[in-house]
Computed example of a mutant assay.
Amino acid sequence: MTFLDYLISVDARTALMGRMMRALGVDRQLKVVPDHAAVTDRAANRCRACGHQDECSTWLDDHHQADEPPAYCRNSDLIARLQHVSGDR
Rank of each mutant, 00 (worst) to 15 (best):
M1Y: 08
M1P: 12
M1E: 10
M1A: 13
T2E: 12
F3T: 12
F3I: 11
L4I: 15
L4K: 14
Y6V: 08
I8G: 09
I8M: 12
S9Y: 09
D11I: 08
D11N: 11
A12H: 12
A12W: 04
R13D: 06
A15F: 02
L16S: 05
L16M: 07
L16Y: 01
M17W: 11
M17P: 00
R19A: 07
M20H: 01
M20N: 00
M21T: 07
R22L: 06
R22A: 13
A23P: 04
A23S: 15
A23D: 05
L24K: 08
G25C: 05
G25Q: 05
V26R: 01
V26M: 00
R28H: 10
R28I: 06
R28N: 10
R28C: 02
Q29D: 08
L30C: 04
L30I: 05
L30G: 02
K31D: 14
V32S: 14
V32N: 09
V32P: 03
P34F: 08
P34V: 02
D35V: 05
H36I: 00
A37F: 01
A38R: 09
A38C: 01
A38I: 04
T40V: 00
T40G: 00
D41E: 15
D41H: 12
D41V: 06
R42M: 10
A43V: 06
A43H: 03
A43S: 08
A44T: 13
N45M: 15
C47Q: 11
C47N: 06
R48G: 02
R48S: 03
A49Y: 09
A49P: 05
A49K: 13
C50K: 01
C50E: 01
G51D: 01
G51V: 00
G51L: 00
D54Q: 11
D54W: 08
D54H: 11
E55Y: 10
E55Q: 11
C56L: 03
S57T: 11
T58Q: 14
L60Y: 02
L60I: 03
D62N: 14
H64E: 14
Q65F: 13
A66P: 00
A66R: 01
D67H: 14
D67I: 12
D67E: 15
E68M: 09
P69E: 12
P69Q: 13
P69Y: 07
A71K: 15
Y72N: 07
R74N: 09
N75V: 06
N75T: 08
N75S: 09
N75L: 07
N75W: 08
S76W: 07
S76P: 02
S76R: 15
D77E: 11
D77K: 15
L78C: 04
I79E: 06
I79G: 04
I79P: 04
R81E: 15
H84S: 14
V85D: 13
G87W: 05
G87M: 04
R89N: 10
R89A: 13
